[in-house]
């Protein structure tokens, strides 16, 4: 990394830093793929299976870059094992505790998704 502070104008320095970050941390771009994928599932019914075996089904309300998930109108598989969830109607799930997210096949355009993955993989390598 070549850091020269010869130009004191903010704009030039900002662009330098931006470009450096882009090349330095190419995976940044790659992170967007799955995040974007989840955004296309907004308002669909999905089932989130957590690493503690709790499965929560609900309507996907929002998702962020950590893949934290907001679900509305939730129901829990096996409520006898998870009685604390009975009175909970909407919830936030931390992305890091998710094992799987299950969804209907018709809510995903697989061709589009594969193309996007190839494109992002190529971009990330530059």
């Amino acid at each position: 990394m070549n850091i020269k502070i010869q130009d004191s104008t903010h704009s030039t320095r900002y662009i330098d830093i931006y470009i450096t970050q882009r090349t330095f941390d190419a995976s940044q771009l790659f992170i967007m793929l799955i995040f974007s994928f989840f955004k296309t599932l907004t308002d669909q019914v999905i089932t989130v299976e957590l690493k503690n075996d709790l499965s929560i089904t609900g309507t996907l309300k929002s998702v962020d870059q950590f893949l934290n998930i907001r679900l509305d109108g939730i129901s829990v598989e096996d409520p006898e094992r998870h009685p604390h969830m009975l009175a909970v109607k909407n919830c936030f799930i931390r992305g890091s505790v998710v094992r799987y997210v299950r969804m209907a096949a018709r809510s995903v355009d697989t061709t589009l998704l594969e193309d996007a993955t190839r494109r992002e993989a190529k971009e990330a390598k530059k």
């Binding site: 995976s27 992170i31 799955i34 094992r99 998704l113 993955t117 992002e120 990330a124």
Partner: peptide
């Protein structure tokens, strides 16, 4: 092969640098 004594097979449609994957 996954943690938690699990394995899955499926058709791969997406992956990223974290090895997040989407399968059908």
């Amino acid at each position: 092969k996954l943690r938690g004594d699990r394995t899955v097979t499926g058709v791969l449609h997406a992956y990223d640098a974290h090895m997040n994957v989407v399968l059908s």
